[in-house]
Design a protein around this nucleic acid. Structure first.
Length: 470
DNA sequence: ACGGATGATTAAAT
DNA sequence: ATTTAATCATCCGT
């Protein structure tokens, strides 16, 4: 682990400091304010000890010396009178007992604290004042996002489902049937991300606490041989945590990134475009072709259409925008469609009227098409188609017997016949039905391009692309 | 795989 | 704010 070695290097650096501190006799003396003779003795002993290698010292001293050690970082209260009795007052001449005696010296706690203080100051001056870290706004942002995305929140379901639903609503997706499948896919991926995130997080946390413990033990042990205050250990732990939290931030950041990518791939409505279902298209087309002279549904009409088609109002707007422009661009291509829907509306109108006049109602086979939007205008195309159809497709009672509506797939010859029939009434439809409407209602809708008719395409149908390039 | 169809997005115009 | 025109990205039949 890279950070571990770096961390240890940092610790080693601190260790080096202690040697320098020990040499600073003057300040020690100044701060202690104790008889100088005493201090001189102690310092000499300290110097002697610091001349030994750490290994030697450890090997020699630790096994036998358990009760009192430097600083008593485990139990600060212990420091006060530790030195009093056990040393027995005799001067330690034996090299082996030098350290032990030093530990038991009555001055030891004071000296220790002074050394710690000095070191503290040095460390602070080196490191500057950036010790207290404010809660990182960056990591807070990431946390918030992960929480909102349902990655770091409660384990299952709730959070992510809510997030997905919210995203779907924001994307304006249809709440209908096919939405759920997509989202289950999305949720599966999200769960995958969440799992990775959590396992990584756990790993990091474990490593962090492990390492922290290790360092703390190390420092505590070292506090027997060099001045390390509890405060310093605390700070070291803080440093470690900072390091690890920066690693954690990286993890969070990459998780956020992954979630964003996932989101854009799965929930961006544009990328995951779904065609409207047949019925919706049908409803929209019916409206469009029955209001061909002014295919601009009002807000209420849009709402109604949206409700009918189980899509949003803005989707209705999109649809009409696309439809208008594409129709206008290549009328010929939409000819058959126009006739088809004209027929359908005519049939509906006919069946409605038949229903009205005759008591029996042969429930229009075409589910949503009978005009719940205002038929006030049901006019132009419907009437034209009606005219074209009348001779062959209406029975005596005026009831529609047309069979193309239910099966949505009109045979080609039927269509052709309709087209040709309608074409026969060209002047009638074009001039007496369409033209007036076009003139008085709409100003910009098809100002010039197609002068006359619905039925005779002005140009070669196949040649023009509705969309220029792709 | 390809090309047309189609819903959505965008900038510009109104 | 809505519409147009162009464009994008995907869907879907072949």
């Amino acid at each position: 682990m890279d950070d571990q070695t770096r961390m240890l290097a940092g610790l080693a650096g601190l260790g080096g400091l202690s040697q320098g501190d020990v040499g600073d006799q003057d300040s020690v003396r100044k701060q202690l304010g104790q008889p100088q003779q005493d201090i001189g003795d102690i310092l000499q002993q300290i110097m002697a000890i610091t001349d030994e290698s750490l290994d030697e010292a450890q090997a020699r001293c630790w096994p036998e010396e358990s009760p009192a050690h430097w600083g008593g970082s485990d139990d600060p209260a212990e420091g006060g009178e530790a030195g009093g009795g056990t040393a027995g007052g005799g001067l330690p001449l034996n090299f082996q007992h030098r350290k032990h005696a030093l530990n038991c010296h009555r001055m030891k706690p004071a000296l220790f604290s002074v050394l710690c203080e000095i070191k503290e100051k040095t460390v602070l001056s080196i490191r500057g004042v950036q010790d207290e870290d404010p809660p990182d706004p960056q990591i807070m942002r990431l946390d918030n996002m992960l929480l909102a995305e349902g990655v770091s929140g409660p384990e299952k379901g709730g959070g992510s489902a809510a997030a997905a639903a919210a995203a779907a609503a924001a994307a304006g997706g249809s709440p209908g049937s096919d939405g759920g499948i997509e989202h289950s896919d999305y949720r599966a991926k999200l769960a995958q991300i969440r799992q990775i995130y959590h396992s990584e997080l756990e790993k990091y946390e474990q490593a962090c606490s492990e390492f922290t413990n290790h360092v703390m033990n190390l420092l505590r042990e070292q506090s027997r041989t060099r001045p390390i205050s509890p405060k310093e250990i605390e700070r070291m732990v803080a440093i470690i945590h900072r390091k690890f939290s920066s690693i954690q931030m990286q993890l969070k950041q990459s998780t956020c990134e992954a979630v964003m990518i996932l989101r854009s791939r799965f929930l961006d409505a544009r990328r995951k475009r779904r065609n409207f279902n047949k019925q919706a298209t049908e409803v929209l087309n019916e409206y469009f072709y029955s209001h061909l002279s002014n295919p601009y549904p009002s807000e209420e009409a849009k709402e109604e259409l949206a409700k009918k088609c189980a899509i949003t109002v803005s989707q209705v707007s999109n649809w009409f925008g696309n439809k208008r422009i594409r129709y206008k661009k290549n009328i010929g291509k939409f000819q058959e469609e126009a006739n088809l829907y004209a027929v359908k509306t005519a049939v509906d109108a006919a069946s409605v009227s038949a229903q009205a006049s005759q008591a029996n109602s042969p429930a229009t086979p075409n589910s949503g098409s009978s005009g719940s939007y205002s038929l006030s205008h049901a006019g132009d195309a419907a009437a034209a188609a009606y005219l074209g159809l009348h001779p062959s497709n209406l029975n005596g009672a005026g009831e529609a017997v047309l069979n193309i509506a239910p099966s949505l797939q009109p045979q080609v010859d039927t269509l052709h016949r309709v087209t040709r029939l309608t074409a026969g009434y060209e002047e009638l439809t074009a001039s007496s039905l369409y033209a007036p409407h076009r003139l008085d209602t709409s100003n910009s809708w098809q100002d010039n391009t197609h002068p006359s008719c619905v039925t005779s395409p002005p140009g070669p149908p196949g040649s023009v692309h509705s969309d220029t390039s792709n």
